[in-house]
Measured scan of single mutants.
Amino acid sequence: MASQGTKRSYEQMETDGERQNATEIRASVGKMIDGIGRFYIQMCTELKLSDYEGRLIQNSLTIERMVLSAFDERRNKYLEEHPSAGKDPKKTGGPIYKRVDRKWMRELVLYDKEEIRRIWRQANNGDDATAGLTHMMIWHSNLNDTTYQRTRALVRTGMDPRMCSLMQGSTLPRRSGAAGAAVKGVGTMVMELIRMIKRGINDRNFWRGENGRKTRSAYERMCNILKGKFQTAAQRAMMDQVRESRNPGNAEIEDLIFLARSALILRGSVAHKSCLPACVYGPAVASGYDFEKEGYSLVGIDPFKLLQNSQVYSLIRPNENPAHKSQLVWMACNSAAFEDLRVLSFIRGTKVSPRGKLSTRGVQIASNENMDAMESSTLELRSRYWAIRTRSGGNTNQQRASAGQISVQPAFSVQRNLPFDKPTIMAAFTGNTEGRTSDMRAEIIRMMEGAKPEEMSFQGRGVFELSDERAANPIVPSFDMSNEGSYFFGDNAEEYDN
């Protein structure tokens, strides 16, 4: 993207840094990872977990959730003011799984939030270390993106479920800051804005008074975040219109849905970061690795190297396929839920299948599930090659597409044709070009129609051997075009429920 120079890199967003050079960025990201790792080690000690239990991804998720809940100030305040039966607002906890007599047992633990905050700050040299908290939120978000298709949420806001490739980060909490905003897809931002506008339509006082002023500035800020994701002048001009509207209503909703559809071809720039579970960072720190000293990046080879040398386990339900569970977590670790499966298959070195073909449910185990038949197995999170994460949407291309997802959002900077089903997408653009945004709409449609099938995206960008740390010898991959490109292809993934 041309304006790259004016933006802070995501590592800076990730670490609240002012302008830093590459070495400083690597050190501050490393410091953040160190903090998460030290916190995780301490929690495993508190909970008396064995090494194996500490490497269980379900335990990692519970521990991450506990610290996120302990620092969720708004919710904590709300819980104190609106006490609900049987919930102690000062405590947080969740299921911890232990191996007892050759069987997995679930144990519900409860801790004072104050105590968890103390352990977290102690692991982070006394700081609140917001960057580390956001990092864990993005890992949870990436896992949700890989596990669930947001059909219901899309339909509720009037969008087409086939636009799911635009929904990265749709389950990120509001408090995820600049680093969170960077990884949100165009569809996620559109959905947040539509929800806001709908509230304004239904509630006369939404934009009024002292609160209304705050609401208005939040609305304009979200519009600017979305505008910054678009790469064409016409899309940005249309966002200006939406932002400046005196009284946002149905016309703005129409414009936003139009823009979301246009992003299936004229893709937005959305950041991709490899955020790993805390149970990967903990053992690495415990083994003596100093992330701050060595430096770390979320968008280069580092996460690949770390996963190459990590042992992570997962509980497996009786009829689940461990290899499929591994694929789910591998995609989440690489922030690749909406990437082209052919690119992923090449990088991973084994075939990556669409969601609907995987015999696996989510990673988390519900409290009512029976533990008797639970097994555990090693997650295979290694890769054959590594590639640089991208934040450009890439230019655009036609490809055989599917009944489910009709476009992709690249996660890796790797040369390819970008699949999208042009006739299906263009069919949504018939007729409606009147109104105050008509010239911009016409211009956007013209650009979409001009998108050429034979153009290559990320020209000359390749993948790298894991021994090639400096990215000196790019390998331009070859793809098996007979395979499906979309992950949520004609899909039956479970729906995400809060």
Rank of each mutant, 00 (worst) to 15 (best):
E81D: 04
N124K: 12
Q4N: 01
M167V: 04
Y10L: 00
G490I: 04
E465G: 13
N250T: 02
G126W: 13
V476A: 13
D51Y: 02
N224Q: 10
N483F: 05
G212T: 15
I265C: 02
Q149L: 13
E81H: 00
R382T: 02
I257Q: 03
M331I: 07
P318R: 01
T134F: 10
L276G: 12
M66A: 07
G209I: 11
S413K: 14
R221F: 12
R355G: 13
S84N: 09
R195Y: 09
N395H: 04
L79E: 14
D497A: 03
M137S: 07
S482F: 10
N250V: 03
Y52E: 06
N59S: 06
D439T: 09
K214E: 14
P318C: 15
R106Q: 04
S467D: 01
S438R: 02
P277I: 10
F488T: 09
F488N: 11
L226H: 08
A218M: 09
G93E: 13
T430C: 12
Y111K: 05
K91T: 14
S269D: 10
R348N: 08
R26M: 09
E443D: 15
T424F: 01
R236F: 12
A123D: 12
M167I: 08
I63S: 03
K227W: 11
S367N: 00
W120R: 14
Y219L: 00
I138N: 02
Y289A: 07
S486D: 10
W139M: 08
G37L: 04
E454N: 04
P173G: 04
L166C: 07
A218V: 07
A260F: 10
Q122G: 00
Q459E: 14
N432T: 01
L143G: 08
C279E: 12
G404P: 04
A427E: 07
D101G: 09
A401Q: 12
P318I: 06
A472L: 13
Q42R: 05
T424H: 00
I444Q: 14
F488S: 06
E115D: 12
K452I: 02
E339R: 08
Y487Q: 11
A442L: 00
A471R: 10
E81L: 00
Y219E: 10
I197Y: 13
Y52T: 12
E46M: 15
L143A: 09
K31D: 07
E449Y: 08
R118N: 07
T215F: 14
Y111E: 05
I25D: 15
S217D: 08
V414S: 15
N142S: 03
F206A: 00
G435C: 11
K422C: 01
A428F: 00
L264W: 09
A451E: 01
R382Y: 09
L61K: 06
M1G: 10
F304S: 15
S482Q: 10
F230S: 04
P474D: 09
A131K: 15
I96K: 06
D497G: 15
V329W: 10
Y111N: 12
N309R: 00
Y78V: 06
I63K: 12
L306V: 15
S457G: 05
V186T: 01
Q241R: 15
L172N: 10
S326Y: 11
T15I: 14
Y289V: 02
A336K: 07
D340L: 15
S482W: 10
F71S: 14
I253C: 12
V312K: 10
P318T: 01
G460A: 06
L381Y: 06
L108Q: 08
R38T: 00
T147H: 10
A411T: 03
V414E: 12
R470Y: 11
A472C: 00
C333V: 00
G209T: 12
E484T: 03
E254P: 12
F71M: 04
E455F: 09
P474I: 09
L328P: 07
S50Q: 02
S297C: 03
R446T: 01
N21V: 15
C275G: 07
T134G: 04
A237I: 07
